[in-house]
Design a protein around this nucleic acid. Structure first.
Lengths: 217, 217
DNA sequence: TAGATTGTTAATCGATTAACAATC
DNA sequence: TAGATTGTTAATCGATTAACAATC
């Protein structure tokens, strides 16, 4: 049982990165690591690492540091990598297919069990071992299989409507790649918006700044 | 000329979202909007909006609010949407192809001019009007065309090596989709890491929390 | 035991929010 | 002019960093 309650989202968003770095270290055969060593590797402060980890309980040992394998397992448990949240993906366009094929859902606590698209031409096509079904079948599929996570790779215009429908069918979490800000409105529903376009614009801004700065030198 | 210098990254990361919402409003024919109205729409505080916008200068008018079209243009200029940073994409796997096809680079200040992959079987295939070239040709291509932005859709293992090479060829900005944390190390180089796996893990954590909470009720 | 390093409290820093005078 | 709403300063809140006593 962890000292849960309300971990700040700043901390939560750092956990997957800890998990990745610890995975690398484990693979390299590293047994123990101190917060200082890890901080140098991850370009964080040692203080922050200790502070972050202590939100969940004392994983370390004074005078020794942290046991890499144990710590990784603990963080994995917190994140829920051992869960198998049934997941469906809506929208099998370029991006939808790429997500289905490229992302390892299983190692991240999710299990992709259905793919849907409005385009009847895609029906039957198999992506990542899963046959694409027509959107009309979502309802029946959900009643039968009770998925909890939905990945949305659909155009902006349909997002709200489809999300509403999915909520009524029992979906609790959305991984949203559409350009629509599927925010709040729902209680007890989790939304993770991935705005690739926004991300590129941020990069463009940064590129502006450095190229401008150089010109001025 | 803006009161530039050092805008906090919290502000910068909100700009693309402002830009999107203002675009929607403009499309809907809205002429003016107050910080309060916009705050309700975007689920922010009016204070924050005024604070954010004033980092760049007074775009509003007392007693009136903000002119939607003008404000959007100004933010676009700050982000650099009118730039045409020459962009290359490395790695034409599922994700690479999807990014090339799915992202509108032009409206975000970038112009995709080359796609590369190590797999010779892909050479010549055309994605989004651009022929896939073999990775061996990157050097010559860069010398001839001088791209500044590189999109990395390659496996973790090769990322550092390829990034180093690209820096030496004049690349100033990386949009990195690989699982590798292409961070710092470089001065005057911008990196935007997109960790889709981390994003999914964050969602998994959230799903854990809400499903657990419900069980306890 | 002495040395190392955590867990945790206190201090600092930055970001968000509130308040209000300036002004359209 | 009166009303509205900004730009901006001050207050609050939260997150990060520093410090150090606890302890392996």
């Amino acid at each position: 049982m962890s000292k849960n309650g309300s971990i700040s989202s700043s901390v939560i968003k750092r956990l997957p990165r800890y998990y990745r770095f610890l995975g690398e270290l484990e693979k390299q055969g590293v047994d123990r690591i101190s917060s200082r060593e890890l901080s140098e590797l991850m370009k964080l402060t040692a203080s922050q690492i200790r502070q972050d980890l202590n939100c969940f309980g004392g994983f370390g040992q004074q005078g020794y540091g942290y046991h890499v394998e144990d710590l990784r397992k603990e963080i994995g448990k917190i994140l829920g990598v051992d869960r198998h949240f049934k997941t469906i993906l809506i929208g099998a366009g370029n991006l939808g297919k790429a997500i289905a094929m490229h992302i390892n859902f299983e190692t991240r606590g999710c299990s992709l069990i259905g793919i849907f698209d409005v385009n009847p031409k895609l029906t039957g096509e198999v992506v990542s071992d899963i046959p694409i079904r027509h959107t009309d079948e979502i309802e029946k599929f959900c009643e039968k299989n009770s998925p909890v996570v939905a990945v949305l790779c659909i155009p902006k215009a349909n997002t709200q409507e489809i999300a509403d429908k999915l909520v009524s069918l029992g979906i609790k979490a959305f991984w949203n790649f559409s350009h629509y800000d599927l925010s709040i409105d729902y209680d007890n529903i989790v939304v993770e918006n991935v705005h690739l376009g926004d991300s590129l614009l941020t990069l463009t801004y940064g590129t502006n700044i450095i190229t401008d700065t150089e010109d001025e030198d």
